[in-house]
Design a protein around this nucleic acid. Structure first.
Lengths: 196, 196
DNA sequence: AATAGAAACGGACCACGGTCCGTTTCGACA
DNA sequence: TGTCGAAACGGACCGTGGTCCGTTTCTATT
């Protein structure tokens, strides 16, 4: 008699040792990064500190960038939660425009704070659709709430783009802008797009 | 008697063999890249094809990313020339708004076309102020011509950001937009910023 | 408790980017 | 043309990210 094969293949549960190792690796990486330059932390060091072999690190996270992205995922998830159900003005409850401004400021602060890690995660993080996708969706939602008309998906990506780390770094570094000026600039941009 | 030491240290002229090797390396790299995936081209292969040692490659270009950036510099320089003194509507002669639209389209096309190389050049290219700086300046100039008021430097960077490769890739890939839609979206963004 | 097979492990191994330093080449000046 | 110091050369060498595959560990099933 054949098994009742599920129509939708289950998400493949994780073996207990695998879960333990993932946990240990994330903790080890976090501890090593704290106090050292991220770039100086080698994969072998992380593996050693977690008490596993190097192969295991790559099995779990695919690449160095993958490990860094996994670290970022923790704070990203928390951030998403505070956007979806945290206190206003970032979370629900405040008027859309206030939420929008809070969103921009929060994103900018987060990106700058985690700059080194974001760079270390490279494309694995930057191309992470679960991240970009969420922010775009939320922005799109706020724009709709504000009654903006037009291609909201495009406008959302266009509003998100200047909040990306490389752009912020250029503005603060090369262009010599202050954080306040960058923030004010973004708010002005919002006004122009929304049409105040 | 002491030499007439120049007040401004001269740009340190390049020895003839050095110049020849740089040339040979750039040509070799270009030829290897043409037809292969950029990522499959190793530095040693470039050095071998150019008939020099590996050390020379790194002496000249600093890193793999540096070599890729140097390749991009050729087309970038040509592009800058066509913006500054090429035929309208990209070059001077057309009304500012038309130049602006042409600028956006041209930049988008260029970035998409050279995507692989840009990725291979990484931060060495992306953080290249000679590149970002030129585009920002020009955008700033056009905005001024259009009589836009406000923080033109910020607006220029904000207008440039959605034309960056990662954003374009997200829009065309994950968001499933067509190139036409992306272009139309950017033009709409311009209209909102300029205030039509 | 025994078994079997799938999943995970670990560390030797590989490839490539990047460095180092002894040797060679250039060109300025006599 | 000879000399000399600076600059460039080249390839052996190193470290690290990433792979491979024989061994170990888990867990479903009886």
């Amino acid at each position: 008699m054949s098994k009742p094969l599920p129509l939708l293949t289950a998400p493949a549960p994780e073996r207990r040792d695998a879960a333990r190792n993932r946990e240990a690796l994330l903790r080890a990486a976090a501890e090593l990064i704290e106090g050292c330059d991220v770039r100086a932390v080698t994969m072998e060091a992380v593996a050693a500190k977690a008490g596993v072999g190097k192969g295991t690190v790559f099995r779990r996270f695919g690449s160095r960038e993958g490990l860094m992205a996994a670290l970022l995922n923790h704070s990203e998830t928390a951030w998403q939660a505070s956007v979806l159900s945290g206190p206003p003005p970032l979370g629900p409850g405040a008027p859309p425009m206030e939420r929008l401004i809070a969103f921009g400021e929060s994103r900018m602060r987060t990106h700058l704070q985690q700059g080194a890690l974001i760079e270390a995660a490279g494309r694995t993080w930057g191309d992470n659709y679960a991240v970009i996708g969420f922010a775009t969706m939320h922005l799109r939602y706020l724009l709709r709430e504000l009654g903006v008309s037009g291609d909201l998906t495009y406008l959302a990506t266009a509003l998100l783009a200047p909040l990306s780390l490389p752009v912020l770094q250029q503005q603060l570094g090369f262009d010599g802008m202050s954080e306040e000026r960058v923030l004010a600039g973004w708010q002005d941009l919002v006004d122009r797009i929304v049409g105040s």
